[in-house]
């Protein structure tokens, strides 16, 4: 990466915003997912690292947090629009949603990884944001770099070659 901008690390259940040439980085997504939203005209985007599919299952939520996939998307859209992005220009990419443990366990919590992916797709559709690409599922962890200069997501895994979507 010769001309990489400032790198911001996004922790579990957090989100961040970046403008070109900034980079948003999140480590070790398992059943969690990394959701990137991007305005290609403004070259500005956001990345979240979410843990739970939907806030609707949860009775009381004190604060809106990027812990939940659906809430994170709402928050990111709101923040991006506030920073000048047009909602109609936003596009999305997803990575993560793996099942880290053996198959017999996948049914345990109704495959939390898959439920995260489903929740993200549904929420994006609800906002009318096209999902351009995704690298989801499997049984391995992913580290994700999101480049605001290009809208590209680089996915790194231990046992696999890097992938760019």
């Amino acid at each position: 990466m010769s001309c990489m901008g400032e790198v911001t690390i996004i922790g579990l259940s957090e989100y961040g915003l970046a403008a070109a040439p900034g980079v948003l980085l999140t480590y070790g997504l398992g059943s969690c997912i990394g959701i990137a939203l991007y305005d290609p005209e403004l070259r500005r985007g956001s990345l979240a690292h979410t843990l739970l599919p939907t806030a609707h299952d949860v009775a009381a939520i004190a604060v809106k947090t990027a812990k939940f996939t659906d809430l994170a998307i709402d928050i990111m859209v709101e923040e991006l629009v506030k920073s000048g992005c047009a909602k109609g220009r936003l596009v999305a990419k997803l990575a993560g949603g793996a099942s880290m443990f053996d198959t017999e366990y996948r049914s345990f919590r109704g495959n939390i990884g898959q439920r995260n992916v489903d929740s993200a797709r549904k929420s994006l559709a609800g906002h009318g944001i096209p999902l351009l690409a995704e690298d989801t599922g499997g049984d391995y962890g992913r580290t994700v770099e999101f480049h605001a200069s290009s809208g590209l997501m680089i996915i790194k895994s231990i046992q696999k070659p890097n992938k760019t979507i």
Binding site: G28, S31, M100, I112
Partner: peptide, 23 residues
């Protein structure tokens, strides 16, 4: 069950129960 991977990816599944009731 076992997973051989990045610590973040290994642990997130375990945090689901806790995350559902609090931060």
């Amino acid at each position: 069950v076992l997973s051989f991977d990045m610590a973040g990816a290994v642990v997130d599944y375990v945090l689901v129960d806790l995350a559902e009731v609090g931060d």
